[in-house]
Amino acid sequence: MPDTATPNLPSRDFDTTEDFYAQFGFECGYKDGGWMILYRGPKGSRAVLEFFPYPDLDPKSSSFSACLRLDDLPAIMAQVTASNVPQGHIGLPRFHPPQKEASGLTIAYLVDCDGSLIRLIQNN
């Protein structure tokens, strides 16, 4: 198995967080009172998000974020678009559709219900 790193993000409520990310194909691989791990995709090439409890988090002042580098950005964007998450620049949750940025990368932005910013980046 190659070396990997996974983002650790806050969650005010694990069930709410799990339900939110399930809309985009994430499945719970582990959950107890102190930690939750969500997976998306097949083993060996899957995206992983890990969550710790933070019940007093103010989502409007959250500065937590992570990048998910994906082989198929359009597939997850189809799920985001089909979900109840609104497109916009304010409110929680929300998303911004993908666009090619000055870096040459195509990036979409998803802000979850706890205010964490997830950058969805198309692998080149």
Rank of each mutant, 00 (worst) to 15 (best):
P2R: 09
P2S: 10
D3A: 08
T6Y: 05
T6F: 03
P7S: 10
N8G: 07
N8A: 10
L9N: 01
P10T: 05
P10I: 03
P10L: 06
S11W: 02
R12L: 05
D13A: 09
D13E: 11
D15A: 11
T16V: 10
T16W: 02
T16F: 05
T17A: 08
D19Q: 12
F20T: 00
Y21E: 01
Y21F: 12
Y21V: 01
A22K: 04
F24E: 00
F24A: 00
G25Y: 02
G25R: 00
F26Q: 00
C28A: 15
C28Q: 11
Y30W: 09
Y30S: 04
D32V: 09
G33I: 07
I37A: 06
L38F: 02
Y39N: 06
Y39K: 02
Y39I: 07
G41W: 02
P42Q: 09
P42F: 02
K43T: 14
G44D: 08
G44K: 09
A47M: 04
V48D: 01
V48I: 15
V48E: 01
L49V: 05
L49T: 00
F51D: 00
F52A: 12
P53Y: 13
P55A: 10
D56G: 11
D56N: 15
D58W: 12
P59N: 10
P59Y: 11
K60E: 15
K60Y: 13
K60F: 13
S61Y: 09
S61V: 14
S62Q: 09
S62V: 06
S63R: 14
F64A: 15
A66N: 10
A66I: 05
A66R: 07
A66V: 04
R69I: 04
D71N: 14
D71A: 15
L73Y: 08
L73T: 13
L73G: 11
P74S: 14
A75S: 15
A75F: 08
I76V: 15
I76W: 01
M77A: 14
A78D: 15
A78L: 14
V80A: 13
V80N: 10
T81R: 15
T81A: 14
A82T: 12
A82M: 13
S83D: 09
N84Q: 13
P86T: 11
G88Y: 11
G88S: 08
I90L: 11
G91Y: 11
G91P: 05
L92R: 04
L92I: 10
P93A: 06
F95N: 00
F95I: 03
F95R: 00
F95Q: 01
F95P: 00
H96Y: 09
H96E: 13
P97G: 07
P97I: 07
P98G: 03
Q99M: 11
Q99I: 08
Q99L: 09
Q99Y: 08
K100T: 13
E101G: 03
E101W: 06
E101I: 05
A102L: 07
S103W: 06
G104N: 06
G104Q: 07
L105R: 06
T106L: 02
T106P: 01
I107M: 01
A108L: 02
A108F: 05
Y109M: 05
L110S: 01
L110W: 02
D112W: 02
C113Y: 05
G115R: 02
G115A: 04
S116E: 00
L117E: 05
I118V: 08
R119Q: 12
R119S: 08
R119F: 06
R119M: 11
R119G: 03
I121A: 04
Q122K: 03
Q122N: 05
N123Y: 04
N124D: 09
N124Q: 12
